[in-house]
Amino acid sequence: MRGVDFMKKYTFYFGAGVAFILPFIPGISSFASGIALILGLLIAVANYTPATINVSKYRKLFLNGAIILFGFGLNINQVISVGASGIWKSALSLIITITVGLLLMKYINIDRKTGMLIDVGTAICGGSAIAAVSPVINADDQQIGISTGVIFALNTVALFLFALFAHLIPLSAEQFGTWAALSIHDTSSVVGAAAMHSDAALQVATILKLTRTLWIIPIVLILAFVEKSNKKGSFPLFIIFFILASLISSFFPNPDLYITLTLIGKAMLSLALFLVGTTLHPKTITNAGLKPILFGVILWVAAIISGFCIAIL
């Protein structure tokens, strides 16, 4: 039994190490979160998650740490000075997507917290938004894992779909860059898709995506107020540190340092999602059914349509 326990721990820690370094590997970094989640799931399927390790505790620790470090990648001054004209576009897209998601949840009998995570992940910035919101609404590993899996799958599809759109739909660089930034979940796929159109589209998409990502702050604050309003407990401190990190990066420029810190944050997020995966049993995913996928697809289609309409206004 000791040999078996040792093998479980060795495999678990090896998988954790791989998950942590994935964001540092060129060509793989864009898919790090999804790969880490799948890797963790394989550990769970093999029943190699050590019972002696408090996975949930460390998952929360790494998630919160990742969120704080992501704050260093949000330069508020840059967004305001360069992307001021895009603020209303990202705000309108956010309102439409979240509203559609809330209405859709009434007609699709989906778990409330899973639906909320998919909604904010679609409306704002994929995995980063899920990571920021999940501690605030007290989402468990199953809800985080399912929502992240749905977002990751659709985000992967988006990269190829918008690459096709770039050649089939006659849009200007500004229009296509705006459309990609408002309709694709994660920054990596936004950048990849826009780059297939033109350098000008890439610049527009990058700035507008950064503007869109800033909406994490008010959304998290609103949810923290709503979810905690009738509960005992302190305000989640990671939100304060997240905002502080964003302010520091805005008023004390040091691009090289902040790029490094953000990359470390991505590595911590990848590790956190690996830990989420290790707690997911195949029966958990099977029991979730097709509803989260259906919810995510319908919501994303709505985001694509609204994003296109906003882009061509």
Rank of each mutant, 00 (worst) to 15 (best):
M1W: 08
A16C: 13
P26A: 05
F31A: 15
S33W: 03
L42W: 09
Y48D: 14
T49S: 14
T49A: 14
T52P: 02
I53M: 09
V55F: 02
A66C: 13
I68K: 00
F72T: 04
F72S: 07
Q78E: 13
S93V: 05
I98D: 00
G101I: 06
Y107W: 15
I110W: 06
D111W: 03
M116I: 15
V120A: 00
A129D: 08
I130K: 00
A132D: 01
S134L: 06
S134F: 03
P135N: 07
I137Y: 02
I137G: 03
G145V: 02
T156R: 01
F160H: 01
A166V: 11
H167D: 14
H167G: 14
P170E: 04
L171F: 01
L171C: 03
I184V: 13
V191A: 12
A193P: 06
S198M: 09
V204Q: 08
I219A: 08
L223D: 01
L223G: 06
K228N: 15
K231N: 13
F235T: 07
I239Y: 10
I240V: 15
L244V: 15
I248W: 00
I248Y: 01
S250C: 00
Y258R: 05
L263Y: 01
M268V: 05
M268G: 05
L271Q: 04
A272C: 09
V276F: 01
G277W: 11
L280D: 07
I285H: 08
N287M: 12
G289H: 04
K291Y: 03
I298R: 12
L299E: 10
A311V: 07
I312A: 06
L313E: 08
